[in-house]
Write a protein that binds this DNA or RNA. Structure first.
Length: 567
DNA sequence: GCCGTTTTCGGCCCGACTGTTTTCAGTCG
């Protein structure tokens, strides 16, 4: 069972409890929903954690749920869950996937609704399941941009910001949330009305005094919140989320006698006292005795504690990046995969525009099929000469920042972890990347050994797009991450944050683990055209979400320090 | 059922919107 399936099951259990005595089981409902959230956010497969006896280390899973899950893993069933859900039709759980339908509505529909009506809804669930794809970050950002432009046409809008997962730079975005600042109450109404008239809107889902939602083509939901200048800080904080961050923040504040909402902060001991208002988020957090928390960190993974202790990281920024360590040029070495579209010269000029000091050319290795080891080595020698030529001509290229290009290679590791490049060929390289392009579904232990074998050659420095996931398309390979991290630390290997918006791999949750352990990371845009080099910003977002400072990233070193690492 | 710089017991986030509810339950973020 995957974590997603387990999370769904736990939510179904919570729903089953809702049908029993609501008051009696109120907290079981909350507990199971929290456990479901925790499972969804876990960095390891739950099954693996159970194998290692570490289920209860997941916050939100205690002795009881751990025991039920253990039984589930061992026998395929949990008697407790089965008993709870035995009288509830399976269709009811399915129907709950539709917005606005909870367990009670679902049961009512099944009990008294037309059977054909229920069938229609179930079909809708199926369609939904197929296209319930979340939107890639750049796509969501540009969609939000269009709506923001539309909203700015209304003179009543003083300021407007994207919110939610978009503002937190999550790799994939569900709904797009937007906050508008207006002067007073009467302007709110006008702005909401203007919003519902967005030319591209298919339907208004809801429209109240302060919030509204519309649906645009592609089944994308846009939520708008309108707030006044006086309350803008509190509203920005509230709507940026994440939900988990806000829950944790409110629990923290309750202990200090404060109740939080999007309107501001209320003192519990003086209920008649007016709500304290905040124009900025910084003021809001500071009032609670916390340092300002960057949106990327607001996931309830220790940021509140760190803000209290003044130990939040100084997050990396795009301008800290001095290099791009995965780029494919059009120099043809008859690769095993796709060639880049831009010449080495074009790439160098683009790198200079981006103010990089150095870059690496990392074409795919020459294909084994159709080449002898000798021929592969010959191809790589030719590439080495070309790179040397580029390095020589950089001095005359009228560039400002770029000083060196490195001769590298993205090597497609074989299923046993050996490399399809002979030793002599490897010796032509300054350093190499290895990555998985086949056999994604090997058992965890086998896959882990494979990767460590591939990383073992002294020329190999980087494990590129390490999970191999493609967002909305395929899950990544299963790896024993603690073991890989330990191997990298011990042998001075680095792990890539691939900046391709479809990959964003290493995922942010694993970046966080790597940072905690001190494993060094690199950025590579994996560009196959100079335009792709602009994707660095998305990799930086992933790094920020993983609590990276610039010291965690190899590409932030200046050229001299980087060269020293290669010796 | 989970969890701990006020607790191993006694707490558990907060408000908005919708519908048929005439005072609130269900659902959502």
């Amino acid at each position: 069972m995957t974590n997603l399936e387990i999370a769904e099951l736990l939510r179904d259990v919570a729903a089953a409890y809702q049908l029993k005595d609501q008051n009696k089981y109120k907290f079981q409902i909350i507990a199971y929903e929290r456990a479901a959230d925790a499972v969804e956010h876990a960095t390891s497969e739950l099954k693996d954690l159970w194998d290692d006896g570490k289920l209860e280390e997941v916050p939100g899973i205690g002795p009881s749920i751990a025991e039920h899950l253990g039984e589930l893993f061992k026998t395929g069933h949990s008697r407790h869950f089965d008993e709870l859900m035995k009288d509830i039709p399976k269709e009811a759980f399915k129907l709950m996937e539709l917005p606005g339908i909870g367990i009670k509505t679902a049961l009512r529909l099944i009990a008294q609704g037309e059977p054909s009506e229920v069938k229609k809804l179930l079909k809708e669930v199926e369609v939904r399941e197929k296209k319930t794809k979340r939107h890639l970050l750049p796509y969501a950002a540009s969609t939000a941009g269009f709506i923001i432009d539309w909203m700015k046409k209304d003179k009543n809008v003083i300021q407007i910001d994207p919110l939610g997962s978009l503002r937190r730079n999550v790799s994939t975005i569900g709904d797009i949330d937007i906050l508008a600042k207006v002067k007073g109450k009467s302007e709110k109404v006008k702005v909401i009305e203007h919003f519902t008239k967005y030319p591209n809107s298919q339907k208004t889902i809801e429209a109240g005094d302060t919030t509204a939602s519309i649906l645009i083509p592609g089944d994308i939901q846009i939520d708008l919140l309108v707030s006044t200048t006086e309350q803008y800080g509190a509203a920005l904080q509230h709507f940026t989320g994440s939900k988990h961050h806000n829950i944790a923040l409110r629990e923290f504040s309750l202990k200090n006698g404060y109740s939080l909402s999007e309107k501001g902060i209320r003192e519990i001991r003086n209920p008649k006292h007016e709500i304290r208002k905040f124009k900025t988020e910084k003021d809001f957090y500071n009032f609670l005795g916390l340092d300002y928390i960057e949106p990327e960190l607001r996931e309830d993974t220790g940021e509140i504690e760190a803000a209290k202790n003044h130990s939040l990281p100084r997050l990396i920024e795009l301008t800290d990046v001095k290099a791009d360590l995965q780029i494919h040029s059009s120099f043809d070495i008859e690769t095993s995969h796709d060639l880049g579209a831009s010449s080495m010269e074009e790439v160098v000029k683009k790198a200079d525009e981006l103010k990089y000091e150095y870059i690496a050319f990392t074409e795919h290795n020459p294909s084994q099929k159709g080449h002898t080891d000798f021929q592969i080595t010959e191809k790589l020698k030719a590439k080495k000469e070309e790179v040397e030529q580029i390095n020589y001509s950089i001095k005359n290229m009228n560039t400002k920042y770029i000083r060196r290009v490195f001769n590298s290679l993205e090597i497609d590791m074989k299923s046993d972890g050996s490399l399809p490049v002979p030793g002599e060929g490897l010796n032509t390289l300054d350093f190499a990347l290895v990555s998985i392009h086949s056999n994604f579904d090997l058992p965890r232990d086998v896959q882990t050994k494979r990767v460590m074998a591939a990383l073992s050659h002294p020329r190999v420095k980087i494990f590129a797009h390490p999970t191999g996931r493609k967002l909305n398309e395929r899950e990544g390979a299963e790896l024993n991450w603690p073991e890989i991290f330990e191997f990298c630390l011990k042998n001075n290997k680095w792990i890539e944050i691939n900046c391709d918006p479809m990959r964003l791999d290493l995922p942010d949750t694993l970046v966080r683990e790597a940072v905690k352990l001190g494993v060094k990371l690199t950025f590579g845009t994996d560009a196959h055209h100079i335009d792709g080099m602009n994707n660095m910003t998305f990799g930086v977002s992933v790094a920020r979400r993983g609590w990276c400072e610039k010291t965690n990233i190899v590409n932030c070193l200046d050229l001299k320090s980087f060269e020293k690492l290669l010796v």
